[in-house]
Each structure stands twice: as structure tokens, then as C-alpha cells.
Design a protein around this nucleic acid. Structure first.
Lengths: 375, 375
DNA sequence: CTTCGCAGGTAACGCGCGTTAGCTACGAGG
DNA sequence: CCTCGTAGCTAACGCGCGTTACCTGCGAAG
């Protein structure tokens, strides 16, 4: 290194002419000006920038006269000042931003999670940055998308991370998510200790079957999903509980698994309906573990000249509005509480970032029964 | 509040001894350290911060030796350095962020617009900030939400704004949107000159009816939406054109408007089907102007013991996957190009912010026919 | 020998803001 | 007289980074 320190130039603080008179009116105030800074506001109001900062951030302890506050407010108005979120974040070392990384952007099934989170964040005066992840198993063309998404969010210095899945399952969250508080929504940490928020499938299954029992049905067919996924396990267990509470058992013969589609539901319903004759063991109600399968079941029932709910009652799960509310008759179903989970996710994150304890490592959210016309 | 969150430990800058020699291996490099700055990287690599900046932003003209580049890359790696997006935006006066304000968050019908925009933004290495707006006519409880949303986005210093609607219509965009380039998606500016991107409803209607004609149908019933909305006007006009091209006219008797729901479609289909006897003027095909109505029409047709497409062919519009792909038989329909519109919106915005001219003030996006099994 | 160009850097300023020391009256207490 | 608040401000630093001006060899041209 040559030359002992710079020293040479550095006229330094020279600039910034003293600007004594606060009376200078500076009439050149064009409205709706871009790049209006806090300093402009200060000048316009005839105070220092610090004072403006104090007023804008509602600092209570350091008293500013009411009159000064008003002058500043007016200057803000007249100049159309708008704070620079980036600069604020930089200076204050906090961002008021959360990030949510989710495959829901690419597979918009559980889109209400985003809505719920978004709304809650908005209420908390925080901003939700949404980053897309790739589909489920991450072997698609967008291999690294998920890591990149998290990376991007961290570059924005989000204070917390939400990770949401389209359907209830175990997931592996990339390591980098550990750098900030992270909450899982509609999924759970397959190998770690991240707090998660999932639907209470079991209670949902219970309430569905209870409803059917209450309507007088004694033989209840169950159209099951892939038996290994959390949704199927929980819902079936709930069904079993409801039956047990009524002193009955779940008849394995009445449980048919199928592909989680309308076609799968159609096939499964056909199987069950054709296995018995009316009155001779044929179920009078069908609990379909998701609405798409219920949609198929509708067809199978109608095809056989049976009516809903007259001959066969049907109850679904998921409350996919587009299906449940438009099927004829409208489908009674158990709702997946997407919005509520999203909102709770944000609230949990808020607690975490504030260093407060959270209720539990895994929070269950209730799945309410939505009565329509199929029972 | 104390900051003792999960990662509460975070020994912070503690380490980071001056480290003059570039040979120092610095074994204390804890991975996953927060608050690593560019200066840290520079020290670690034994260069100045400026050099690091040059390397990281790929400055070509100012030559940095390959070896230096590598040392820096390695330092970045070892320290887990992550640029601070906010600081970068502040210094460079550009943000690489777009904002999208949309009611889609609250009414997720056209959610693919977001997906398309998100994907395109990602490709362009830009970040899409999503802000919720209130429902359509803005007389809900969230009155000021929309303005607040735009305000928030501008505080983030987004370089451009996207404004997306759930269904094709005219909208009034708040004034503040004029401060940055703005593009409308799936809607158009009712009173101004903002560029917009909308589906080509007319071509969509044309292709649907052409398909039916090509399949040999001569009497085509049309189940119309509210006749005053852009979608209805365009699609109907397209149908008329297709008929005209085949030397036919649109028979007003065969056009029935109804509520845009499954029930509405059911009622309208009943009206049409019951008005004529088979072979005596009863249409052999139904063009439903949206998929929900097609869903209802299916019921009406099946109820009458008719088959699809054997007795009556059905074609829908919108391609609501949840309906179209799960109806039995699967519904042939015209797709609303949501993703494509979202992507084009981002591309248009990129052009605008770059000062380039855009193709046209109103860009039409094609609505492709999706062949399934109902024709 | 001086001069110039060029490769390979570095010091320092400022982006807009939060925040911490002050600094100036001005009145009360000793 | 001096000290000590307290109300009501202001100067100045630094957040992490992009960027401009400048500096230092060093070999080639003049």
C-alpha cells in the first residue's frame, strides 16, 4: 500500500450549505414528484430531518409540539412524500416482511392458504413476499427453484418464512430456511423440529360420520384415498372414532380405496353400490374422502337411478368450492381450513420473531362441516 | 423484545478478526452466519470491497484477474455471503421488483395469471410483489385496501405495476398507479390509456363453434352469460362469425341467457332442450359460455336420458380444470389463457420500464380449444 | 529519459433513513 | 451565582452497497 491513508482529497462534510433561515419558502413545490425524500419534507416544513423521522415513526417519548407535527404532516401531504421501504429496512435492520415459499403458486389447489396469510399479514401491517416453489416431489424441470426461492427471500431480508404445501404431507425443508424463524403450513417437517400447522383430519372425519349417523344412516360406505397419506389416515381414524362412539365398528368391506379423482370415485362407488342389493346391506350413505371422488360418486349414483340424498346420502371432504357448490345437489362436505391455516401461520411467525413462545410444535386447525344438500 | 428466537444464538460478528494475510485459512468460518457483508467477503479474499462488488455484478469492462475472481467466489461460498437486496436497491436506484395488485388473491378464480406472471418474472430474474385488492366493485368492507396496496408497493419502489382482475371487464385504476409503468391484465382501462392484456373472446367463440360445425352439428344451442359483459359480447360475436363463415346465421331462439352458475346452466339447458323434439329442431350441440354452466347443462342432458356427446355435444369456455377435467365425460372447452396473459403482462412491463415501445395498447391473447371428450 | 496506455486495483461518496449524541433556551432548586 | 432538569429541537454516524474518481506499477512508444 502506498501513501499513508487517503487524507489527500476528502474535503468531506464541506457541502450542505448551512441553511440557517427556516423561513425560506422554496416555492418550487411540484406536486406528485418522484424521489421526494425525507430531507425535502424537512426543508419544506422548516425542521430537521430527524424531527420528521421522529414524527413519522410516532416516537412518543421525545416530545414534539403539536404544531410541528401538523406542519410536517402537511408537508408530507403537499410533497406527496412516500417513505422508502428499502432504506428504512436498511437503517433499522428490520424489514416487516415475511416470505412464503410454496408450490401453491404452481399448483393452485390450496390457494386460500395464501389468501389467509396475506390478509393476516396485511392486518399486522406486514408485507408478504410470495415465492414459487416447484411441485411436490421436486423432480420436475425446475429442480433448484425451491432453494433459489428461499435464497431470494432471504436476500430481501425477510424476518420469517412460511412454507406451504398443496396437500397435507411430510416435507423436507431446505437448510437455508433455518436462518430465520420458519413455520410450515399444511405440511409437517419430516425430519426436524420446525413448527407446523395442519388440518385436524381426524376431527374432520369424525364430524362427517357423526353427521351421517345423526341423519339415521347405519350402513356407511367409505370411499378412501390412497391409504398411506396423512389425509386418509386421519380421516379414516376419525370415521372409526365416530362409529365407535355410536357403538359400531367400521366394516372393512365398506371401505374402498381409489384414485383421488372423479373417475376413481366413480369406480369405487360402483364397486360399493353393486356389491349389495337395496336393503340387503347396501349402504345408504357414502363418505367420500375428497370432493372430486364425491363428484364421481354422484355420477355412479345417478346412473343407477338413485337419488341424492333420498336414496343415498353423500358427504365429501375438502370443500373445493368449484365442485362442492356447483354439484347438483350441492355437496355437503368437510372444509379444509386453508385460510385459517394461512392466517395462523402468520400469527405463529409473528410470535416466533417476537421471541414469544408458541402454543405447540404442531397446531391442528379445525375442519368445519359445511351443510349443503347432499345429506 | 429480546431477540432470543429460535436461532437466537447467532454469535454475530464476533469472529471476523482483521485477517490481513490472504493466506490465513480462517478455520473459524461458521457456516450459516447471519449478517455477512460485502466487506467481510473482501477482507476474507484479501481485496477491496469495490473489487468484490465488481465481481459480483459481473462488470466486464473493468478487468479483474481470473484468479481474483476465484478467490472472491470462494470467499462468498465460505462465508455464506448473501447480498442485501434492500441495500442494493438503495444504492443502485433500481429494484428489480414489479408489483401486482389484484383481487385474485381474494377471489382465486384466475389464479393462473399470478402463476404466469410469477414464472416470467422469475425467468427475468425479477421479483414479483403481490398485494391484495378487494373484490370487484370495491364496496366491500376493505374499502381502501386497493389504494393502500398500491401505496405499499410504491413504498417498496417497484419499477412497474400489474393490475389483474378475476374476470374480463373494465376497471378504474387508482391514480397513484400512474407513478410507474402500469399494465392491466384481464381487464381494460375504462377511462384512460393504460395498456392492457385481455383474452381474445371473439376468436375463442369462433373456434368453439367452428369445432361444432366441423363435427357436423347444424343446430347449435348457445347458453349465454349476462349479455352485457365483455366475455359474452365477444364470445357471441365469435360464434356469429363462425356461423356466417359457414353460410349460416345465428338463430336467436337458440340463445338463452342465464345466471353464470351450474344452476343457471341447468335451467337454460332445460329451456332449450324442452322447446323442441328430437329431430324437430332440437339442437344437437350446446355451446356453453362458461364451464360452470356446462356443468349444469350436463345434468339437464343426462336427466333426459341423453348421452354426451352421442346425442348432444357440449363445449364449454374458461377451462376451469376442476370442472372441465373432472366432468364425465371430460369437457371439451375453450381455455382462458391466464398464464399466458400473466407472462405477457410481465414482458410488456419489462418493455415499458426499459423505455421500449409495446406492441399495442390492447393486446389480445389467444384462447385455445382444448379437446376432451364432450364433442 | 519522459510519456502514455493499460491492467488491476483502492478510497470515498452518497443512496434514504433510524438513531444517538448532543445543543439551546428556560425555569426551578440550591 | 451555579447546577440541573426538561422541552424541543439538530448534527452526524452508519446500515450495505453501487459507483466514480483516482492511484500504482509496468511495458511500449517517442
Amino acid at each position: 500500500m502506498a501513501r499513508s491513508t487517503a487524507e489527500g482529497k476528502a474535503p468531506g462534510k464541506a457541502a450542505k450549505a448551512p441553511k440557517a433561515g427556516k423561513t425560506a419558502p422554496k416555492p418550487a413545490a411540484t406536486t406528485r414528484q418522484r424521489g421526494v425524500t425525507m430531507t425535502d419534507v424537512a426543508k419544506h416544513a422548516g425542521v430537521s430531518r430527524t424531527t420528521v423521522s421522529f414524527v413519522l415513526s410516532n416516537r412518543e417519548n421525545a416530545g414534539i409540539s403539536e404544531e410541528t407535527r401538523n406542519r410536517i404532516a402537511q408537508a408530507v401531504q403537499e410533497l406527496g412524500y412516500r417513505p422508502n421501504a428499502g432504506a428504512r429496512a436498511l437503517a433499522s435492520q428490520r424489514s416487516d416482511w415475511y416470505g412464503i415459499v410454496t408450490e401453491i403458486v404452481t399448483a393452485p389447489f390450496a390457494v386460500d392458504i395464501i389468501k389467509g396469510a396475506q390478509d393476516q399479514a396485511w392486518l399486522d401491517r406486514r408485507f408478504l413476499l410470495i415465492a414459487p416453489s416447484d411441485q411436490a416431489d421436486a423432480h420436475g424441470p425446475n429442480q433448484g427453484l425451491e432453494d433459489a426461492a428461499i435464497e431470494k427471500l432471504l436476500e430481501q431480508r425477510v424476518e420469517g418464512l412460511l412454507y406451504a404445501a398443496t396437500y397435507h404431507r411430510g416435507v423436507h425443508v431446505p437448510e437455508s430456511a433455518n436462518e430465520v424463524p420458519t413455520v410450515l403450513i399444511n405440511c409437517f417437517d419430516a425430519d426436524g423440529k420446525l413448527p407446523s400447522i395442519v388440518p385436524d383430519e381426524r376431527a374432520g372425519g369424525r364430524v362427517a360420520v357423526e353427521r351421517l349417523l345423526q341423519a339415521g344412516h347405519r350402513r356407511i360406505g367409505i370411499i378412501n384415498l390412497d391409504p398411506d397419506i396423512p389425509a386418509a389416515i386421519g380421516r379414516l381414524e376419525g370415521a372409526r372414532e365416530a362409529l365407535a362412539a355410536a357403538g359400531r365398528e367400521l366394516d372393512p368391506e365398506l371401505v374402498v380405496s381409489g384414485h383421488a379423482t372423479a373417475d376413481g370415485g366413480y369406480a369405487a362407488a360402483c364397486t360399493i353400490l353393486d356389491r349389495y342389493k337395496e336393503g340387503e346391506g347396501r349402504p345408504t350413505a357414502l363418505f367420500c374422502l375428497n370432493d372430486r371422488m364425491a363428484m364421481g360418486a354422484y355420477d355412479a349414483i345417478k346412473e343407477r337411478g338413485l337419488t341424492i340424498p333420498g336414496d343415498i346420502a353423500v358427504i365429501g371432504f375438502d370443500n373445493q368450492e368449484l365442485i362442492a357448490a356447483y354439484l347438483r345437489p350441492k355437496l355437503t362436505t368437510v372444509a379444509l381450513p386453508f385460510e385459517e391455516m394461512g392466517a395462523l401461520g402468520v400469527r405463529t411467525l409473528a410470535a416466533l420473531t417476537a421471541g414469544q413462545p408458541i402454543a405447540a410444535d404442531q397446531q391442528l386447525v379445525d375442519c368445519p362441516l359445511l351443510e349443503r344438500s347432499s345429506v
